[in-house]
Write a protein that binds this DNA or RNA. Structure first.
Lengths: 174, 174
DNA sequence: TATTGTTATACTCTATAACTATA
DNA sequence: TATAGTTATAGAGTATAACAATA
């Protein structure tokens, strides 16, 4: 007798009813993936007409919040390679959302700064993202919502900043 | 006075210290992405020499748990397109982990079944995944670990099966 | 008409490697 | 020697559209 599993024993016979998720139903990794994909889809829906994909928003948002940041630092914060920052920054620049400014103390680097258009776009996107996230978390109680982001930050090794979560949605009002 | 944000006011001046995550630090979507990427990386590390990518494992695991399942049903359960199942199943077939069997009642469909090699591979992978997930969740208390998968399943619209989470890791023993 | 499996194709996100100009 | 930005390229994962065979 092998494969003695708690879920979905092999004698489920010939797959008539709804298929069982089997081992996958106990995997945090798989649950993470499914949640991520669902949220990602709804994000695109919410921001579709702004033409802001998630990383484009992330990059813009970080530049707004850290005026003068250089590309390498942006890559480190976003935990992606420098080479992948280039096209993101190119696009933000081309669309007039940011400027690349020479850094007197280091002629290799460019200081990134959001333009007025960039700040406005980020502001509009943040409002929609607040509504989007509220929608995604509608199945969770307030306490659960606050807990989730903290748990995720710890799993993802993200720095956890002080204060309540979901401030994003709390500034969605007028 | 615009952009009145709780986090990372623009007067942070010239990005000297560690950059702030700003709005991103309150976004569940972003936390989800970071957690997902970290877990994904460690998954590849844990299963690297088995040459099992996450979706390859997912597909194999579902076929083991649902003998006779057809490709369309597999696609529905995994929430991906039928066309993307083809290459996954091709690879599992080519590597001798599953067989495609004609379905007498529907000559369009193939019933998928794991071979002995497929079951053994899934078993070995499950053991390593248990250790991998334990590692990923090491920053969380037992109660938090149990809570996380439930929260994620609800965010991801996954069917939540009864019973405690983390059974996967509990069968990692001898 | 609808569904099953399939092929072709494209797009996003990410990584690696190699280059240049500076430091 | 190391770092900042860049370019080129590759791979995984996903999606859409169209097709033949079958229901």
């Amino acid at each position: 007798m092998r494969e003695r599993l708690a879920v979905a024993p092999e004698r489920r016979s010939e797959a008539e009813g709804a298929p069982s998720m089997g081992l996958l139903s106990t995997s945090v990794g798989y649950a993470l993936k499914r949640a991520y994909l669902r949220v990602y889809d709804d994000f695109l829906l919410a921001l579709g007409d702004l033409e802001l994909r998630p990383q484009l928003f992330s990059a813009l948002s970080l530049i707004v919040d850290n005026p003068g940041i250089i590309q390498s630092a942006l890559a480190r914060v976003l935990a992606i390679e420098r080479s992948n920052i280039v096209l993101l920054v190119d696009e933000l620049d081309r669309r007039g959302f940011i400027t690349r400014n020479p850094v007197p103390s280091d002629r290799r680097a460019y200081a990134l700064r959001a333009t007025e258009a960039g700040r406005l776009c980020r502001r509009e996107a943040a409002i929609r993202i607040a509504a989007h996230e509220k929608r995604m978390l509608s199945r969770l109680s307030d306490a659960e919502q606050r807990g989730l982001i903290d748990l995720l930050a710890r799993v993802g090794s993200l720095p956890v900043e002080a204060g309540p979560a979901l401030r994003l949605s709390e500034r969605a009002g007028p």
